[in-house]
Simulated assay, not measured.
Amino acid sequence: MSDLIIALILGIVEGLTEFAPVSSTGHLILVGHLLGFEGTTRATTFEVVIQLGSILAVVVVFWRRLLSIIGVGKSLGTKAPEKSHLNILHIFIGILPFMIGGLLFHDFIKNVLFSPKTVVIGLVAGGILMIIAELLHKNRSKTLDLDAVSYKQALYMGLFQCLALVPGFSRMGSTLSGGLLVGMNHKTASEFSFIMAVPIMAAASGKDLLDSWSHLHASDLPLFITGFLTAFIVALIAIKFFLKLISSIKLIPFAVYRFLLALAFWMFIL
């Protein structure tokens, strides 16, 4: 199979799964294994590059909100909410626990936890958490939009986000579960999770890319560019679709899908 076909397939997988509560890491490991594209620095670097494509999609979708958060929206003439209360402190509080955990346990996660067995455990455990969060939520949301999110809720979502340090757990799945458990509705929790993803994923992907920079070759550019653009376009569509979908089908169908994916790992990889 040619590199460009592999780039297209994995770019589509990344774009579809990065911001859904189903573990993009799990999908990339499984599909990469089936395609025979795994176990090399080239493959690892490619995953980092396509994640950057997904991050760019979030920036495009939420650019007005992101500008208002950092305080430059008005100067550029954007139509930020007049009574906006969501600010950069909410984001900082939300990402701080994950950043501390990532810095402390980065090597342990990469060298010990990053395995198919851990992914299966993360998929199942994350699915169970999502079902519990959905059952306890019971449509009793008190926080119905981003500007009603409190600092305490941001902290709790940040703490739940730390579960995503375990491969397979899913950053989106853990943050959505945390958001529901602290009183947000599905759309608000999803949007806050998307916005928190920008600095977290940009920092993590940027670090990994710098670490792999010496292994990059000009001959790999078509592979990386194809994957990046594919992930960006697919994620752009998937984000908008997911925000509409999550309010109607909730989390339990995604949890069931995670259990099926764990079964696929057991059949094809373990």
Rank of each mutant, 00 (worst) to 15 (best):
L4P: 02
I5H: 12
A7S: 12
L8W: 06
I9G: 08
E14D: 08
L16E: 06
F19T: 08
G26R: 00
L30W: 00
V31G: 01
L34A: 13
L34D: 09
T40A: 00
T41D: 12
T44Y: 09
T45P: 02
F46Y: 13
V49N: 05
Q51F: 10
G53H: 10
I55K: 07
V59K: 07
V61D: 00
F62I: 07
R64D: 05
S68D: 08
I69T: 11
K74F: 02
L76H: 09
K79M: 12
K79H: 15
A80Q: 12
H85N: 12
L86N: 02
L86T: 02
I88E: 10
L89P: 01
L89A: 08
L89K: 13
G94N: 03
G94Q: 02
F98W: 01
I100A: 06
I100P: 00
K110T: 11
V112Q: 12
S115K: 05
P116T: 00
K117F: 02
T118G: 03
I121L: 01
G127W: 01
M130I: 08
M130F: 09
L135F: 10
T143H: 03
D147K: 03
D147A: 00
G158C: 09
L159T: 03
L163Y: 10
V166Y: 01
F169A: 14
R171K: 09
G173F: 10
L180K: 09
M184H: 11
N185Y: 05
A189T: 14
M196L: 15
D208T: 05
D208S: 13
A218G: 14
P222L: 08
I225M: 07
F228D: 03
F228M: 06
F232S: 06
F232I: 08
V234E: 11
L236Y: 15
S247L: 13
S247C: 13
K250C: 04
P253W: 02
F254K: 02
A255I: 04
Y257M: 01
Y257H: 01
L261E: 04
L263N: 03
L263C: 09
W266N: 08
